[in-house]
Amino acid sequence: MTLADGVQIVSFVVLAVMMIGAALGVVLLNNIVYSAFLLALVFISISGMYILLNASFVAAAQVLIYVGAVNVLILFGIMLVNKRQAFVPVRNAWISKATTAAVCVGLFALLSTMVLATPWSVSTAIPIGDTALVEIGKHFFSDYLLPFELASVLLLMALIGAVVLARRDYLPDELLAQEEMRKTALTLPERPRELISGSRK
């Protein structure tokens, strides 16, 4: 065994343990902020796995999209929601927990039998490594064009949805009425904003 092989095995074990541990933490911890941070650790471990598989571009994209965007947005969501309420203890809570556990164990068993039963045909092709970027681009614009475009349409829908939710014009009337009530004598009258360019001749 050469030095490189040893390093590879050790890093794989470390990454795998880190990923499973962090994933368990995401599910089992009570503090939701810890879960969100551990989710970032899971994503980073996955990106480490990609690096071990010689897919450096996918690894970097994983970090950028999942850690840098998705996870930060999750954290944002958690930290901006200012709801403090004590959990009402549900009676017979153990039933739901037991069901969850049973489902999880069942899924795990199913998957592991599938993994063990399938005769995996290990590809002997040499990983393309650094030229993966070009290959991914070619696939995006040829045989995977439709899923690629559909994904962007999906993102556009999400974007428009967010804009609609965030715009105050679409607030229900009762909320607007409340808003009117909240205006006190201390509120300074504000000049309505207008485009400078629109008004000037």
Partner: peptide, 25 residues
Amino acid sequence: DLSVGVFLWISLSSIAPIGLLMAGY
């Protein structure tokens, strides 16, 4: 000399906000 060079920088710099959020929280 990574083939993903600049992209690595962009993706690594996107981790920093998590640290900042963590510090803030």
